[in-house]
Design a protein around this nucleic acid. Structure first.
Lengths: 171, 171
DNA sequence: TGTTGTTGCTTCGGATTCGAAGCAACTGAG
DNA sequence: CTCAGTTGCTTCGAATCCGAAGCAACAACA
């Protein structure tokens, strides 16, 4: 039970601030998206990702990874978006079992309708109290951890420590 | 529809990095919490908040605000935790309609069991690629936006722009 | 080519989430 | 004191979410 190297307050503070800030921001953005475009945050992320892609399309798995989302959850949202005509889904040409999702014109329209308000919230809520250099620094630091986390193995497979409690039943 | 002042790439980058980094970190932590203590992230947050409180207790509403959560969602989780004996719930002494939630010894035990692994993930996944001063800077900047967001009105009530679509029915 | 293992996606069941509505306890004005 | 309005929490229904299980298409290898 001993705590080999307890994290210090500064580190804990950074962690808590990260979680809280992202939660608050996300909640605020969620409201706006629902109001203006009847979109959930995930749906928006998906549309935005597709909108950014060179050909406006991507495979399901890549989308899920990009958005940090479960596959089943993505299937659900993709179907929802398809019903609303905001995306199309078709088997990939080269891999018969892959599904290529593509944004439609209607999808781009919704995206365009939602975007200004989205940006407004970012300005007012997130960026307002930050200086130019704050933003630059923040982007740099967060990008670094993000990339590190993306690179690092899915956990509990590699760094599995022996002994102690915790069934670790999983499979 | 015009975009009065499109956000620049740096700002967008900071925003995306914030969302992605917190998502990735949260997912990783969620795994560990579930494995070791059978706790969801919210449940952990609640226990941790209570554990930090001077008297190990708090009102429902304060908990919900602290964790950025809906009231109904909190009710659900509090009931779950109570069933497991990790917290107790009792009407507040001074305000008959308020509920005071308090962490139990069992709750503290679970917290202690989960904590080392939690910290380990923070170290390996989040803090590893950051220098001491990075962490300091990050904590400072994120605290500032967080506080700003907490201070700023619930949105769409204050900054309500006239005209355009979006029912904005709310009250 | 046949076999085995992997990968990509969906379906399923159960858990979690939220907002709206409802109820009880407080508060303030008359 | 009495009434209208507010506040704190819960219940309800519907939407969303995840992991496990299942299925089809690929890949590697003898």
């Amino acid at each position: 039970m001993a705590n080999p190297r307890p994290i210090d307050d500064q580190q804990l503070g950074a962690y808590l601030a990260l979680i809280e800030a992202s939660s608050l921001l996300r909640h605020a953005v969620e409201q706006q998206l629902k109001e203006v475009g009847d979109l959930s945050y995930v749906q928006f992320q998906l549309l935005a990702t597709l909108g950014d892609a060179a050909d406006g399309s991507a495979r399901m798995t890549d989308l899920a990874d990009g958005v940090v989302y479960s596959r089943s959850g993505l299937t659900y949202q993709a179907q929802t978006l398809e019903k609303r005509g905001l995306v199309t889904r078709a088997p990939s040409p080269d891999d018969e079992r892959g599904i290529t999702v593509a944004i439609t014109d209607a999808g781009r329209t919704v995206l365009a309708k939602v975007f200004p308000g989205h940006v407004a919230i970012l300005e007012d809520l997130f960026l307002a109290p930050l200086s130019r250099s704050d933003v630059e620094t923040l982007a740099d630091i967060l990008s670094r951890t993000r990339d590190h986390m993306r690179r690092t193995p899915p956990r509990s497979v590699s760094t599995r420590r022996r002994g102690s409690a915790a069934g670790a039943s999983q499979a």
